[in-house]
């Protein structure tokens, strides 16, 4: 089933053109990897999909389950099922993880016509999902990402993904700054969460993450356009040859 349809998407930031006509279709059950050199527009694509301020869409369209994505503010996109794992998760002093997730999960449940969790059910849910990314339960009472190590922050992103059960998860360089152990935990978490009814877009610089999460498709974003698509073998090719051979 078609989940996301990006057509000829163009976007700029501060008057500078970053995306120059991106086409991409994502179906349920699929994992897509988007690779590309620095400055190719990978994170811009993620930001535009999640609805971050400061980006101006200058052309093209994005449909999420047939609805115009740009009609929705970020929170509605999230409730509809889009999740962005941040490249740089934000520290929010004074807001506990538990409080944050309870507000978020119950908003999303309301949107899906589900009863809000009561305190006990919510705690149980948190406990189970935290195990997926091997997070200690003590982190629930800590402020969101405050004083977390790089690895803990990324694990917290995947924990939130598990809690919110998105239709489409966009992981923006979730592998950056992770040592191999943390990378394995994060990848295992994503693999456990991902199923036939949802899709994942992995945005990454390196092939390394793809050793642990196997993509169905690999795309190369270069200079604001997808210049090449293929299967996971393309990732090995990129690892070997770099990006220069695509420039011609």
């Amino acid at each position: 089933m078609n989940l996301l349809k990006i057509s000829k998407l163009e976007a700029q930031i501060d008057g500078k053109q970053i995306l120059r006509g991106v086409d991409l279709t994502v179906n349920t059950g699929e994992i897509h990897a988007i690779m590309g050199p620095n400055g190719s527009g990978k994170s811009t694509l993620a930001s535009v999909l999640a609805g971050r301020d400061g980006y101006e869409v200058t052309g093209g369209s994005v449909e999420f389950e047939g609805k115009n994505l740009f009609d929705m503010p970020p929170e509605i996109r999230a409730r509809e099922g889009i999740f962005l794992a941040f490249q740089y998760p934000v520290e929010i002093p004074g807001v506990s993880n538990a409080n944050f997730m309870k507000s978020a999960v119950n908003e999303i449940r309301k949107h899906r016509n589900l009863e809000p969790f009561d305190a006990l059910d919510f705690l149980e849910e948190m406990k189970q999902k935290a195990q997926l990314v091997e997070m200690d339960k003590s982190f629930m009472s800590r402020s969101v990402n405050e004083g977390f190590s790089g690895g803990e922050k990324k694990r917290n992103e995947i924990f939130q993904m598990a809690m919110l059960e998105p239709r489409l998860a966009i992981l923006d360089e979730t592998d950056s700054g992770l040592d191999i152990d943390a990378l394995k935990i994060v990848a295992a978490g994503v693999n456990k969460i991902h199923g036939k009814d949802d899709a994942v877009i992995l945005i990454t610089h390196y092939q390394r993450l793809l050793d642990y999460i196997t993509p169905d498709f690999v795309h190369v974003l270069y200079n604001g356009m997808i210049v090449k698509s293929g299967t996971k073998e393309l990732a090995f090719e990129l690892e070997e040859k770099g990006y220069d051979w695509l420039k011609g």
């Binding site: 970020p74 929170e75 929010i92 409080n99 944050f100 507000s103 908003e107 999303i108």
Partner: peptide
């Protein structure tokens, strides 16, 4: 934005 990207409304995010 971080809070909103998790489904929390702009007003509720402010209040949090």
């Amino acid at each position: 934005f971080y809070l909103r990207s998790r489904g929390i409304s702009a007003d509720d995010a402010k209040i949090l």
